[in-house]
Amino acid sequence: MRILLVEPDAQLAKTYARVLHDDGHEIVAAKTAQSAIHAADAHQPQLVLLEMQLVSHSGIEFLYEFRSYDDWQNIPVIILSIVPPGEFSGNRELLEQALGVVGYYYKPHTTLADLRKLVTKVTIGT
């Protein structure tokens, strides 16, 4: 599966990419919302892993932009963020229904093993 990893921290991006690559996935990494849109255009990802706290533009802004293109309406997005999901509890409907987020995971509580399972689950479902 071709995965767009939107992760601003260089260290974490490298670690996530290595492990997912070992599982046979193709990883396209982007550190900002803007570069993520360019990367999506160039590589047509099948899954997006998204951090909400980015530089300049937030993950929400990225999602609005991403979903505004017809080609990317149905690509699953998993949020893997340093921002606790509780802070978005009021926007759950918006994230899930309007912006097509299939899961919100808090990074400090999500191990690499958890992440691999999540990605496998999405891979089987698509």
């Binding site: 921290d9 260290q11 974490l12 492990v19 990074k107 400090p108 191990t111």
Partner: peptide
């Protein structure tokens, strides 16, 4: 802390 935890797990 997150970086160390994930690096160790990796």
């Amino acid at each position: 802390f997150l970086q160390v935890a994930r690096l160790a797990e990796a």
